[in-house]
Amino acid sequence: MKHLFLLMFIVLFGAGAFAQVKTDSVAYGRQRAKINAMLAARRLKFGQYDTSLTKRSGIFHMQTKNDIRRSNQILMDIVDTDDEIFIELKKLFDYRTNQLNYTAFQKKQIENTAREVEKERIAYMKTINSFRAQNEALKAQTAKQNEDYQSRQKLYIIAMAMLIVSVIVLLILKRKRSN
Rank of each mutant, 00 (worst) to 15 (best):
F18Y: 06
I110P: 00
H3P: 06
N179V: 09
T23C: 04
D148Y: 01
K45C: 03
Q99T: 07
T51Q: 14
N129L: 12
D80S: 11
Q106L: 14
V167S: 08
F86P: 00
A37K: 12
L138M: 11
M62E: 15
F86Y: 09
V167Q: 05
M76A: 15
K126Y: 05
N36K: 12
E118A: 09
R56C: 05
K2A: 13
A19E: 07
S52L: 02
I168A: 12
D67Q: 02
A133T: 15
F13W: 12
R175T: 11
E111F: 06
K108P: 00
A27M: 02
E111S: 06
K154D: 11
A133K: 13
S25Q: 04
V165N: 04
G16S: 02
I78K: 02
N36A: 10
T64Q: 02
F60Y: 11
V117S: 09
M1A: 10
G47L: 03
S166G: 00
A104L: 13
L89G: 00
A40S: 12
R43E: 15
L39F: 07
K139H: 06
F9R: 15
L100C: 03
K176V: 10
T127F: 08
I68H: 06
L89R: 05
T97D: 13
I74Q: 04
Y95M: 01
Q63V: 11
V165T: 07
I110Y: 05
Y49K: 08
K107M: 11
E147Y: 04
S25P: 03
Q63Y: 05
F105I: 11
K34T: 13
A15I: 09
I172Y: 10
K174P: 00
K108M: 12
L53E: 06
K45D: 09
Q99S: 07
R152F: 08
Y156S: 05
G16Y: 02
L44G: 08
I128C: 06
F131T: 13
F60W: 08
N36Y: 04
R70H: 13
I74D: 02
Q48M: 12
K107N: 13
V165S: 07
K55W: 06
R132Q: 14
R177Q: 14
L75F: 08
R42D: 13
T97F: 08
E136W: 03
H3V: 09
D77M: 04
I110S: 13
F5E: 15
L173I: 07
I172G: 04
R69W: 05
Q150C: 03
Q73A: 15
L39S: 01
R152K: 15
L92A: 10
R177G: 06
L100Y: 06
S25L: 02
L92N: 09
D94A: 12
T64C: 03
K119R: 15
S25T: 01
Y156E: 07
L44I: 10
S151W: 05
M160L: 10
L163A: 06
M38L: 10
N146P: 00
A137W: 01
L100T: 07
A159M: 02
S178C: 08
I59D: 12
E136G: 00
F60T: 05
Q134V: 11
I158G: 04
F86N: 12
N66A: 15
M1T: 12
A143D: 09
L39N: 08
T127Q: 13
A41V: 01
N66P: 03
